[in-house]
Design a protein around this nucleic acid. Structure first.
Lengths: 238, 238
DNA sequence: GCTTGTCTGTGCGTTGACGCACATACCGGA
DNA sequence: TCCGGTATGTGCGTCAACGCACAGACAAGC
């Protein structure tokens, strides 16, 4: 049986939960349920009412927009740095996006109503949620800029670094086909870009099993977008 | 001398101000200062502390990210539908973006401190600001998607429609060069796209003076991104 | 073993956008 | 009236990414 202390320690792996005041955390803990998310699971569908908010610890969730013709593009990524379901406290209840598990792992979930209750209490939890939302806005904004101005190679580096920041290890279980769906480019484009990164010795991969070997190498290939987002997260939540 | 009633009527042209409760508006009005903004004026520079929040009535403000090499791309646009300076109440105080006047016109401004005070009071103003922020997030997200997946022609249509929605007339004073900076594409690309729209009879323009002749025509050339954003604004703030 | 499905690699023609160069057109001021 | 500055139009070569087709390569299961 998992002790309360163990749960608490697990919860602190999520930066938002780690940042709230002690009394707020005590109130939250009994309402947090730890679950495992398999790769590909859909947490929300576009326009669907959100029943839960998620605080990932080791899982990574991708926020996608799916076009009417089926093509897709990622607008943001959430790991242990944040939460999935900001629309719950922002007042919209839904978003026109899909939230899907990009990397299997664990997450806490909490009922939307309880989330709203705690949010309206104000306090540090309230302000932390808002600061996180602003950081997410920066990430989405930079995705927009990067999509417009940078090459697939640069974007793959950015995407790998963003993922690595949220990953408990250096391994990423993910096919090139899935990555291409996230980045909204051709699968072949990812094949080429990934091959170059592998030849440079920055990553290795075999059939959906990717390992980041040289993080600093990746950072030499990335555009400024990554650092802008990183700096803003540190500034707002660090 | 401008009467209080006249100021109030002017204020109601901004949808956010029009949406707050009567007592909230009475508190806000004495702190709101109506000013004229010329084309090109910079309201915020990237990373700069925001002293004021702006509630446009007839002006349109563009939110841009400026790359280190000087190229730029728009991440969102704000008119009488919203406000500029959400970072003030989100807690970050600054953003890595520039806010620049895209279409000359009038706006109310209010000191950042007063904004924070009113926001922390809660009430409808609080929730309206958050709902607006969510709508803006959708706009930024859709910009990211559109940048990735759609042609310059489609994006110009989207951009014109978004501008038209926030414009008091059908005229837009703006050179193709400026539009290209907003969309993050070449000036020649805009020349080509605009020429096609003019030949189709949807717009006319001469040296920085553009008129929208056939809005429905533009809507036939736009991608689904425009409607997604429009619908979300209506849902959240309508 | 074999088959089947999935993942990755590669080639090839097409295209949309880029970068550059320069022509043309228009405006306002000296 | 001329002139300099600005806005727009156009041509041309280049390139990154696309769409498609198909060839290995590997894993899992029978």
């Amino acid at each position: 049986m998992t002790t309360t202390a163990a749960i608490k320690e697990e919860a602190l792996q999520n930066h938002l939960l780690a940042g709230v005041k002690a009394d707020e955390l005590e109130r939250l803990l009994p309402n947090l349920q730890l679950i495992s998310l398999p790769l590909g699971q859909v947490l929300y569908e576009s326009g669907e009412k959100m029943d839960y908010v998620y605080f990932p610890t080791t899982a990574i969730i991708s926020l996608l927009y799916i076009m009417e013709n089926g093509s897709s593009a990622e607008i943001g990524v959430v790991g242990n740095d944040g939460m999935v379901g900001i629309a719950i406290f922002m007042g919209g209840d839904t978003t026109p996006n899909r939230a899907v598990v990009q990397s299997a792992g664990k997450t806490f979930k909490m009922k939307a109503e309880l989330m709203k209750d705690e949010f309206t209490r104000g306090g540090r939890f309230h302000s932390l949620c808002l600061r996180y939302t602003q950081a997410l806005i920066t990430q989405i904004s930079q995705t927009a800029v990067c999509n417009r101005l940078h090459s697939v190679d640069q974007q793959l580096c950015r995407w790998l670094l963003l993922s690595h920041d949220r990953l408990p290890s250096d391994r990423l279980i993910m096919t090139q086909d899935l990555i291409s769906n996230m980045l909204g480019v051709r699968r072949e484009g990812i094949t080429h870009a990934a091959k170059r990164l592998q030849q440079a010795g920055y990553i290795s991969y075999v059939r959906g099993d990717m390992t980041i070997l040289d993080r600093q190498g990746l950072e030499t290939g990335v555009c400024e977008c990554y650092q802008v987002v990183r700096t803003e997260y540190d500034r707002l939540l660090g």
